[in-house]
């Protein structure tokens, strides 16, 4: 039984949510002879990725790099997402606890039209693009990730920030049941990050809803995360539940924890070492163990597009 469906509707939208979230169980049940057809689910092959649903009508983008992307396996099994555990392998192992549906993002602060927006609305009302970006972690490793997402600026405009909105603040979900890593106070939960308004409005800055053409796997920050490719990875906050416009520089979790090691700007910069290690080179994940490290470029190689944002600023001071 194959039911043809319009391409712009997500499987999550046509399938009752409680079934959709438990679809693996239904698939397993169907294998043991319990009627899948009776429930009326269109059977799809289980995906390796936890989310595993294709995002329709994803447009290519001229901002994408032509470097070969890191494998899906590596992108989804080597993660810094302390909410799901502090080891690189923990987020994948604990990914099942996070429930990315239903999901609502609250937008408030210095804006004329504060409100809430659901993930379904986000997926249907903003044109989703593929953005293949380099990702440089502050720990001196890097990946190339084929994100799916849309410019953060598109969402910002909808909530009409006022002239007092100088910064944009972000907040991750706080729920130790869904995020077992939050049961220990490794960081000052909830995770917070921020951008200056011009950084937030820059066309390279996106909110990501997926990667490799499918919805974001939980361990990569489902259902909605920030991606700022010229900054160290920790700026790209995951599983966002709140976006606020502020007049003053908002608090950022790592900066508050260790201000001399993690600055608010956190622009990739080989000339400014982390106090405990060099930032001149990085290891490209997937290069293999006999490969040499690669040279790190200022602004992670996006200097032509973003360097002007920081004209006249001392980047050694505002690192």
């Amino acid at each position: 039984m194959l039911i043809k469906k319009p391409a712009d509707i997500l499987p999550s939208e046509i399938t009752p949510q409680q079934f959709w979230q438990r679809r693996r169980e239904f698939l397993k049940a169907s294998a043991s002879g319990i009627g899948l057809a009776a429930i009326g689910l269109a059977g799809t092959a289980p995906h390796r990725v936890l989310a595993g649903d294709t995002i329709p009508n994803v447009r290519p983008s001229p901002f994408s790099t032509d470097e070969p992307p890191t494998s899906l396996e590596d992108i989804t099994s080597y993660n810094n997402f302390y909410e799901l555990g502090t080891d690189k392998t923990d987020p994948k192992a604990n990914a099942r606890f996070l429930k990315p549906r239903p999901w609502t993002v609250t937008v408030d602060g210095e804006c004329a039209a504060p409100g809430e927006i659901g993930i379904k609305d986000i997926l249907s009302s903003f044109t989703q693009e593929e953005r293949i970006y380099r990702l440089r972690c502050v720990e001196a490793w890097a990946m190339v990730v084929p994100w799916v997402g849309f410019p953060l600026g598109d969402l910002i405009k909808r909530f009409e920030p006022t002239s007092k909105a100088k910064y944009v603040a972000f907040e991750t979900l706080y729920d130790p049941e869904q995020m077992p890593g939050q049961k220990r106070r490794v960081l000052d939960w909830p995770y917070r990050e921020g951008l200056r308004m011009d950084e937030a409005m820059h066309p390279l800055t996106i909110l990501s809803t997926g990667l490799y053409g499918e919805l974001l796997p939980n361990q990569n920050g489902a259902p909605l995360r920030l991606v700022v490719p010229w900054k160290y990875g920790f700026k790209s906050i995951k599983s966002i539940v709140r976006i606020s416009f502020t007049e003053k520089e908002p608090p950022a979790t790592w900066t508050r924890m260790q201000a001399n090691e993690y600055g608010f700007y956190a622009n990739v910069n080989p000339a400014v070492d982390h106090p405990r290690w060099s930032q001149k080179t990085h290891r490209m994940i997937g290069d293999g163990w006999l490969a040499k490290k690669r040279e790190t470029l200022p602004f992670n190689g996006y200097g032509d597009q973003v360097a002007e944002l920081y004209a006249g600023m001392d980047l050694k001071r505002f690192f």
């Binding site: 890191t70 590596d74 080597y78 490793w141 290891r283 997937g286 293999g288 163990w289």
Partner: peptide
């Protein structure tokens, strides 16, 4: 089985 960053793992 050393994962995506084998040098770090070793």
């Amino acid at each position: 089985a050393l994962g995506p960053n084998p040098v770090e793992a070793i």
